[in-house]
Write a protein that binds this DNA or RNA. Structure first.
Lengths: 223, 223
DNA sequence: CATCGCTATATCGGTACGATATGATTACAT
DNA sequence: ATGTAATCATATCGTACCGATATAGCGATG
């Protein structure tokens, strides 16, 4: 569940652990709240499995790609270059790059029909939906919708609970209903996108639900 | 986080593990989805800590208090009573009862201002809010509200995300906003309840937000 | 210059989950 | 009646994640 986030971020370029966490919290902080205690073991696990590999931390074009560490303005850079000989920066940060096996593993995780189905897991999957084929996207949405409908059906909204507990259950059920409505919107958008793709020209640069997504499908649809 | 649920359920009467899980999923399935792999270790942990103690499984007034196991209609009951001599039932189920130390621990957990603050933790806490003093209830609500407001503020809703990820972040932010609105309603209800309590008679059996809750405050307000 | 804060990696203990094993009892079909 | 499927009930194992903590280099502030 965390391997997916790491591999998905690393697909856009090599990063080190601290920066992975920074970006995950900045961009997907609402969805995945990852901590160091899980991130570094996950990176070690992925490296042992051959899904990622550690670069030698050359920090040649890495620091230029990371404006966050910035504030090195000329004189600072010279001072730093004089102090740090060769290939070691502040604390020898380990920069990871995704391998081919890691790309395959990412596709497997993203496309997996089983696994845990809590809201954070789905949110993470859907935030990488640009790497899925349109049919897989639709399947993922409808699978998730069926799960939520089942959850709503299992709600007993019984009156034997005190008002506080009942309030919690009611609010949670409202949240699930809101999720279902959201999924319905997404499903409709995906459907119209697919029909637009099939009926119009191959290159239709506007009015698509997936506008702005590069490489619309690089993970095979295995179902 | 699970100790709270177990102790809260056990406050209403002794139960065995399987039944604890059954009730938690039936009543608070939206909030706490507990599994055996965490429930039984938690029970053993609580027993080792002295917060609960195991009864000898007499199943005299326990099975009568559990209509779920039912369908024992006369003849079945006689057959069963003949078969099972004395104090052991189907699989020697261990019935737990909360101790005084467990009650104190429950109050501590419920009243704790620190600890994890995810939505499931708060939902569980609030579903036992009848055991809190009104001032503690209000403090809990406003603490949670401040956390959610901060979460919303940290959202960057940046446009550098692709439409799929942006949709997830947007929907999550909407959910947080909905939670804040819900909390505002609860805060207002608690405030009016407190002012009603202070301005009207001591015994006002109707028009209270906490109507139906027995023993309105048995956990001390420690803050 | 000393201390604080940020960057950066790593480990530890505890908590929770899913899968699985085991066994006893009940329901149901053959 | 007998087999067999389902349910009740407890327990354990491996794994994942989190919060707290340790360590350490470095820039900025006072």
């Amino acid at each position: 569940m965390l391997d997916l986030a790491i591999l998905g971020l690393l697909k856009e370029g090599p990063l080190h652990g601290y920066e992975i966490r920074r970006r995950l919290r900045a961009q997907l902080g609402m969805v995945a709240n990852v901590s160091f205690g899980s991130l570094y073991p996950a990176l070690a696990r992925l490296e042992a499995a051959g899904d990622v590999e550690a670069l030698a931390s050359e920090d040649d074009e890495l620091t230029t790609a990371l404006p966050s560490t910035g504030s090195l303005s000329g004189e600072r850079a010279a001072q730093r270059a004089k102090r740090l000989v060769g290939a070691r920066g502040r604390r020898s940060r380990k920069v990871y790059r995704v391998t081919d096996a890691g790309t395959a593993h990412f596709a497997t995780l993203l496309n997996a029909s089983s696994g845990t189905d809590d809201s954070r897991s789905f949110g993470l999957r859907w935030s990488f939906a640009r790497h899925l084929a349109p049919s897989s996207r639709l399947a993922l949405l409808e699978r998730r919708r069926a799960q939520l409908v089942q959850r709503l059906g299992e709600t007993t909204d019984s009156e034997l609970l005190d008002p506080y507990a009942r309030s919690v259950v009611k609010h949670a059920a409202d949240g699930v209903a809101s999720d279902i409505a959201w999924l319905d919107d997404l499903i409709e958008a995906e459907r119209t996108s697919m029909s637009d793709m099939s009926t119009s020209d191959r290159i239709a640069p506007s009015a698509s639900a997936a506008r702005g997504a590069n490489s619309p499908a690089d993970a095979g649809a295995n179902n």
